[in-house]
């Protein structure tokens, strides 16, 4: 048996909400902490297994080398693309101030 991670805390939930760009009220924080705790308790049957000798499966079907030829294909009409955008300026997507550099 491998060790089972501790129960998810309110701080954990606040942290993942920040990572996922979600804002939660205090009530929501309490609610989700409880609900996620129940789900993760159920997942303890998986989390506590010793599976060191088992290979992970990321794809159900083992396919390799799916490749496309380097041939240009028509893209989208720019006006159609920009028409879907919440805000556009100079044919670009406009966003509010960016506070940090890209990582």
């Amino acid at each position: 048996m491998t060790e089972h991670p501790g129960r998810i805390t309110r701080e954990d939930v606040a942290h993942v909400a920040r990572l996922a760009r979600l804002r939660l009220t205090d009530d929501e924080l309490d609610l989700y902490t409880g609900q996620l705790g129940v789900i993760l308790d159920h997942a303890a049957d998986v989390a506590s297994l010793d599976l060191d000798g088992v290979a992970p499966t990321a794809h159900a079907m083992a396919v390799t080398n799916v490749l496309r030829s380097d041939t240009p294909r028509p893209g989208l009409d720019r006006d159609e693309v920009l028409a879907a955008a919440p805000e556009v300026e100079q044919h670009r997507f406009r966003v509010p101030r960016i506070l940090g550099e890209a990582p």
């Binding site: 599976l51 088992v54 499966t57």
Partner: peptide
Amino acid sequence: KALRVRTL
């Protein structure tokens, strides 16, 4: 772990 369970 979940990916390994998938294998099982």
